[in-house]
Design a binder for these strands. Structure first.
Length: 596
RNA sequence: GCGGCUGUGGUCCAGCGGUUAUGACACGGGCUUCCCAAGCCUGUAACCCGGGUUCGAUUCCCGGCAGCCGCACCA
């Protein structure tokens, strides 16, 4: 009670950033007209382009520079996918709550000491076990409620009649896995290759909070990089080996202090499992820097062994430090080994192996067993095929002798040796089938977008007045240039409009604003992160020049109108520094003071 | 899901069981050769939703929804 008013008076950055984002059209709580629903957000007129530009930079990094194939799969998936991925069983927890103290428990955990594999039981069965064994609340001993399911996947029906269940995908990754055979053919049967997807995923979170950090509908950008498990080097590792970064490895976490080193060193010392993983951690680092995540408020944290999925070889999370929220995971990069493809092979019964040719064919002795099916067929009828298979699996010693003994699922059968022939032949083996390993970088685009806002937010003081600024990189800013006539008068408006048109033809995201005073418009644009303001004044009319104002320094340079577009393009690309863009304009203060 | 606190124009906030619900900022229009949230005139705009109590509810009560905090959950 006492803390409340204090907390309100002191607005922290989190509050300032979320308030700014709402007010200026970056992020809006969804469905407000109908009361809203937690875990859903709209990207407004500024948020949508910001997010889109971040996605485009991601494409630059992972689709264009790495040559990965971008695909687009349905957001609804059929049951089999999620049986294989484990989301159907693993993503759904049987819960029970205490009727007295309201504490919630995993029902299956409570009966672990009685039933070895509680996963196999239905909720009713688990509840029966709880009742029969008189299990009460571990906290207060109170009576436990019936067991209920909470699956984090949204379920729906495909077509009428409830015949086929569909689930909104909880991750985009499965789209790449289940297209593996077609992708493999697309890449002409050669490893390594990779496919990516940027799109929506859905998780029916129990309690979404913290704005856009935990959403029920969110955007992921995921890559599945299929590699030969025997070679986890990366051909372009040299390009990143000298990049320095702070590694928060398992060992470093024990010390409580991240360790800075190069990626080359990290692989050499075994901090990161191998080049392949390290390479993508490095690219991820570069991507995050490119969109404007602050290096001081970012770290790469290695999963603890107990935190890592049992099949994962190594896993690193990119984490950012956000105001109020602390360290938040925004990217996960894991070596998932062959787990996913094996699981899909198991459930779908489709071979997802890759034939990898040897450099030289290998000669090998091979035993060929030929059961006499003409004789075996009539004799064993339905079992004939199984008998033949059993015979084929025997070794030469077992095939010797008058009578051959086979084991058919426990049943011992004797076969006369005349019914089967065998020989040893030399064959040439040209390669082998392997299940590829998968490196999976998985990006939470909404979290990254929010982090960019949080890290870009900055306040300074100008003449005793607070100025809030989003120091967004020109590469992601939703408005790249604001064109501002000093006053809303025809002689200024006409040239200003011409500039707007010219810039738009060149693909600039331009805003044009005549309202209120010029200072107000500068502040407005500072707050939404517009890097440059072009001001059209009377010197434009008299001498054909305009000023460009730099958002961060508030300095201005004067350039000729004819050169404006070119200069802005150079500023945008980073080819030109602001100070070199034109004649410096003396600051407002100096202008006010009369010349001596 | 549980508990606590909160819900008034775009934003922040005042207020009351009863006439037309404050104020500031923001926003729109107008004026001014106006370069860093200026000035003057002027305008638009709100009691989260549903039920109950009451002659009358934005106000009191209950429920829902949403937000914040804590707990639980987060493959």
């Amino acid at each position: 009670m006492l803390l409340k008013p204090l907390a309100r008076i002191v607005m922290d950055n989190y509050e300032k950033v979320t308030e700014l984002a709402r007010r200026r059209g970056f992020l809006w709580p969804a469905f407000e007209l109908y009361g809203g629903a937690a875990g859903f957000y709209d990207y407004g007129p500024l948020g949508a382009p910001l997010k889109r530009r971040i996605e485009d930079i991601w494409r630059q990094f992972f689709v264009i520079k790495e040559g990965f194939a971008e695909i687009e799969a349905p957001t609804i998936g059929v049951e089999g996918i999620f049986q294989a991925s484990g989301h159907l069983s693993g993503f759904s927890d049987p819960l029970t709550s205490c009727k007295e103290c309201k504490e919630i428990y995993r029902a299956d955990h409570l009966i672990k000491h009685i039933i070895e594999v509680p996963d196999a039981l239905s909720n009713q069965e688990i509840y029966s076990v709880i009742k029969e064994n008189e299990i009460g609340c571990p906290e207060c001993g109170g009576e436990l409620s019936e067991v209920y399911e909470f699956n984090l996947m949204f379920k729906t029906m495909i077509g009428p009649g409830n015949k086929m269940a569909g689930y909104l995908r909880p991750e985009t990754a499965q789209g790449m896995f289940i297209n593996f055979p077609r992708l493999l053919r697309y890449f002409r049967d050669r490893l390594p290759f990779a496919a990516v997807q940027i799109g929506k995923s859905y998780r029916n979170e129990i309690s979404p909070r913290q704005g856009v950090i935990r959403l029920r509908e969110f955007t992921q950008a995921e890559a599945e990089i299929f590699i030969d498990p025997r070679d986890k080097t990366h051909p372009r590792f040299d390009e990143v080996k000298d990049v320095r970064m702070k590694f928060y490895s398992q060992a470093a976490q024990e010390r409580g202090e991240p360790e800075e080193m190069t990626f080359g060193e990290a692989v050499e010392r075994g901090v990161v499992a191998h080049q392949m993983l390290a390479y993508y951690v490095a690219r991820t680092y570069q991507f995050l820097l490119a969109v404007g995540v602050s290096p001081e408020r970012m770290r790469f944290r290695q999963h603890q062994s107990d935190e890592m999925a049992h099949y994962a070889a190594d896993c690193w999370d990119a984490e950012v430090l956000l105001d109020r929220l602390g360290w938040i995971e925004i990217v996960g990069i894991a070596d998932r080994t062959d787990y996913d493809l094996k699981a899909h092979m198991d459930i779908s019964k489709v071979n997802l192996k890759v034939f990898v040719p040897f450099e030289k064919p290998v000669k090998r002795q091979k035993l060929v067993v030929k059961p006499d099916m003409k004789a075996l067929g009539p004799r064993f009828k339905g079992q004939a095929k199984a008998v033949a298979e059993a015979l084929k699996s025997l070794n030469p010693e077992e095939l010797e002798g008058e009578r051959i003994l086979i084991d058919l699922g426990g049943e011992k059968i004797e076969i006369d040796s005349s019914l089967v022939s065998y020989e040893t032949v030399e064959e040439e083996v040209r390669g082998e089938e392997i299940v590829p390993h998968v490196i999976e970088p998985s990006f939470g685009i909404d979290r990254i977008t929010y982090s960019v806002l949080d890290h870009a937010y900055y306040e300074d003081t100008v003449d005793g007045e607070a100025r809030s600024v989003l120091r967004l990189s020109p590469a992601v800013a939703p408005i790249e240039v604001a064109v501002l006539p000093l006053m809303d008068r025809d002689e200024l408006v006409r040239p200003a409009r011409k500039i707007v048109d010219d810039l738009r033809v060149l693909g600039f995201r331009v805003d044009y604003d005549t309202s209120g005073s010029i200072g107000r418009r500068y502040r407005r644009n500072d707050e939404i992160g517009t890097p440059y303001d072009v001001t059209v004044d009377y010197e434009t009319v008299e001498q054909g020049t305009v000023t460009i104002r730099d958002r961060d320094s508030m300095n201005q340079v004067r350039v000729k109108v004819e050169e404006l577009c070119e200069k802005l393009e150079q500023l945008r690309s980073g080819a030109l520094k602001f100070e070199d863009a034109g004649e410096p304009v003396s600051s407002a203060k100096e202008q006010e003071s009369p010349a001596a």
